[in-house]
């Protein structure tokens, strides 16, 4: 009797996604409360992750810095 084969898990890959991640959900709330920045957020992926459109990267980083944040940028 042949050994049972393990079914491979289906996944969907999302490449080149721009997002902001923080450990603290309150930081996300703080960001979303600021209208100029909230306009640049495409949506929430979870309570600590915000999705951003790639073309808004410059404006978003500028706005974050204007708010006093020093985001670590991973390219």
């Amino acid at each position: 009797m042949p050994p049972p084969t393990t079914a491979r898990t289906p996944i969907k890959l999302h490449r080149n996604v721009a997002l902001i991640r923080t450990e603290d959900p309150l930081v996300v709330e703080e960001l979303m409360a600021r209208k100029p920045l909230a306009r640049l957020i495409a949506g929430r992926l979870s309570e600590t992750v915000l999705l951003v459109r790639p073309e808004d990267e410059t404006a978003l980083l500028e706005e974050l810095r204007r708010m006093g944040h020093a985001p670590r940028v991973v390219r």
Binding site: L13, H14, N16, V17, A18, T22, V27, L60
Partner: peptide, 29 residues
């Protein structure tokens, strides 16, 4: 101070995300 504050927020410019069908499948992976 600036160096210490850096890890509070991370911006990923071109991350790769893997979406699973369920959270259980993610846990297994």
């Amino acid at each position: 101070t600036w160096a210490g504050r850096r890890d509070r927020l991370t911006f990923f410019a071109s991350a790769t995300l893997i979406e699973f069908g369920s959270s259980a499948e993610l846990e297994d992976a």
